[in-house]
C-alpha cells in the first residue's frame, strides 16, 4: 500500500459518501445519472466476485472496503430507482448503457491476461469502469448544469483513478509491478474527466456553479 493508493481509495469512499448524502439529505436524485450508478454497481460486483468465491482476501480492510463499495453502490441504486424514483431525471439520463456494456464485454473477451471466467469478469469490470461515468457527464451536458454537491462528487470520483495512476507509477518504479490493462483503462477513465476537472477548478473552487453552454 502506498500513499497514492491510500488517498485514491479514500477519495473513492468520499465520492460514494458525498453522493449518498446528497440524495439522502435533499431526498432527491436530480442531476444524478442512475445509469452511471448501475454501471458502477455492476463494476464492483464483477470485480469483487472473489468475495463470493471465498478467496482468501489479502487483509481484512480490503474485504471490508469491497463490501462497503458493493453495498453502498447497490443502496445508491435503490435510492435512485425506488425510494426517490419520482425525482429521477430519466429524460436526460438517456445515454444507451448497452453501448458501454457490450463493447466492454467484447473487449474483455479479446484483450485479457488469462482467458478464464474470473479474469474476464475482472477485465470487463475494469473496462466498464473506464466509461461508466459517461452517462453522468452526458446528463450534465443535457441539463447544462451540475449542482455544486454533484460537482464535488464528480471531482472525488475522478481523482480516485487519477491517484491510482500515480500509484501505478510508484509501483512500477519501486515494485516493478505493471498491470497494463488496469493502467490503460485508468488513463482513459481519467482523460474523460479532464474537461470536467477544468470546469471544477476554474469555477466551483471560486464558488461558482458549473453551467455548461446549453
Amino acid at each position: 500500500m502506498n500513499i497514492f493508493r491510500l488517498f485514491g481509495d479514500l477519495s473513492h469512499l468520499a465520492a460514494i459518501a458525498i453522493l449518498l448524502l446528497k440524495i439522502w439529505k435533499t431526498r432527491s436524485c436530480a442531476g444524478v445519472s442512475g445509469k452511471t450508478q448501475l454501471l458502477f454497481a455492476v463494476c464492483f460486483i464483477t470485480r469483487y466476485i472473489d468475495l463470493f468465491l471465498h478467496f482468501v482476501s489479502l487483509y481484512n480492510t480490503e474485504k471490508v472496503m469491497k463490501l462497503i463499495y458493493i453495498s453502498a453502490s447497490v443502496f445508491t441504486c435503490y435510492l435512485i430507482f425506488f425510494k426517490f424514483k419520482a425525482t429521477y431525471d430519466g429524460n436526460h439520463d438517456s445515454m444507451r448503457a448497452e453501448f458501454l456494456i457490450v463493447p466492454a464485454a467484447g473487449l474483455a473477451c479479446l484483450i485479457n491476461t488469462k482467458f478464464d471466467a474470473i479474469e474476464i469478469l475482472w477485465t470487463f469490470s475494469i473496462y466498464l469502469e473506464a466509461v461508466a461515468i459517461l452517462p453522468q457527464l452526458f446528463l450534465i451536458s443535457k441539463t447544462g448544469e451540475a449542482e455544486t454537491i454533484t460537482s464535488h462528487y464528480l471531482f472525488a470520483q475522478g481523482s480516485y483513478r487519477a491517484l491510482y495512476i500515480l500509484n501505478w507509477i510508484y509501483r512500477y518504479h519501486y515494485e516493478s509491478h505493471v498491470d497494463t490493462i488496469a493502467i490503460v483503462a485508468g488513463v482513459v477513465q481519467t482523460i474523460l474527466y479532464c474537461d470536467f476537472f477544468y470546469l471544477y477548478i476554474t469555477k466551483v473552487v471560486k464558488g461558482q456553479k458549473i453551467v455548461l453552454p446549453a
Partner: peptide
C-alpha cells in the same frame, strides 16, 4: 508482477 496472484488492488 506475479501472474495469477489475485488482484491486490481495489
Amino acid at each position: 508482477y506475479k501472474d495469477g496472484a489475485w488482484k491486490d488492488e481495489l
